[in-house]
């Protein structure tokens, strides 16, 4: 079909593609560009080249504190979201519980419902029952957001796997738990792993829930950047942002390796 598209259309398509990619990636490229500036102000193109703002970020206790909080949070969220997401996906995939379709709609609801609403709800709920917001509140909030992604990637793999393998395992003498451990989990592994990386990325980059539930003790990296942006922007923001972009790029390629980014996106 592409072969029979007229030349004029194909030229237009190439120009359009270049423009779209510039539009989508341009802002990120600018951030990376700014981070290498030698000047004192946020300017693009950067003035001179230096790593001084990276040094500034890496030696700043504020940034590093926020980064450590974000990392800790992302790690525990990854663990909880992966375990919960993978088990829920297994149950949804089997479809034996009554009302499975309602169930899966409920578990995927955090993807659709505006995050701000649930963030506000969590803030009010937490304050009413537990007082001041804390690390644990963020943990729960991020896990709720990350679980649907793990469910989706796991289901994507399970839906293409052989339904009868588990039953086959049972006929070979494996109990229900052993069948899950030795047959279902290994089968779903690419999906679970991709979901785990997703969960990590979501928690590490999340800003809405973090903003609502922030307290002086729990400032994540995105919140630190946000605060800096509002009050005293300098190129250290660009350096911190560039580091976050770098992490995301690594995660995308890892996810593509593990599961294929097309299956995740589709």
């Amino acid at each position: 079909m592409v072969e029979s598209a007229p030349t004029s259309v194909r030229i237009a398509a190439v120009i359009y593609l270049v423009a779209i990619v510039a539009f989508v990636l341009g802002p990120l490229a600018v951030v990376v560009g700014v981070s290498f500036t030698a000047g004192d102000y946020i300017t693009f193109p950067p003035q001179g080249l230096s790593l001084r703002w990276y040094e500034a970020v890496l030696s700043s206790s504020v940034y590093m504190g926020a980064a450590i909080t974000s990392l800790k949070l992302a790690v525990v969220v990854t663990i909880s979201a992966t375990i919960i997401g993978a088990s829920v996906a297994t149950v949804i995939h089997r479809g034996r519980l009554p009302g499975t379709s309602v169930l899966s709609a409920l578990f995927l609801a955090p993807l659709v419902l505006p995050t701000i609403i649930f963030a506000l709800g969590l803030l009010i709920f937490w304050s009413a029952y537990f007082g001041r917001t804390s690390f644990a509140a963020l943990w729960i909030g991020h896990t709720v957001i990350a679980v649907p992604y793990v469910i989706r990637t796991t289901l994507a793999v399970l839906s293409t796997s052989d339904r009868y393998l588990e039953e086959a395992a049972r006929t070979m003498g494996a109990g229900p738990w052993k069948a899950i451990l030795h047959v279902v989990v290994p089968q779903a592994m690419p999906g679970i792993a991709a979901g785990a990386f997703f969960a990590f990325n979501i928690s590490f980059d999340e800003a809405i829930v973090s903003l609502f539930l922030r307290s002086p003790e729990v400032i994540t990296l995105p919140i630190q950047i946000y605060t800096q942006l509002e009050y005293s922007p300098d190129p250290s923001i660009a350096a911190a942002s560039a580091l976050m972009i770098g992490l995301t790029v690594v995660l995308i390629f890892v996810i593509d390796r593990v599961l294929g980014i097309q299956r995740v996106a589709g």
Partner: peptide
Amino acid sequence: LWLIISITLPLMTSVVVRTFGWMVL
């Protein structure tokens, strides 16, 4: 594949980082 990666990169980058890029631009 490359186009999917190009459009998922901003999707998976923190909203504050993306917005910061636009502020500079």
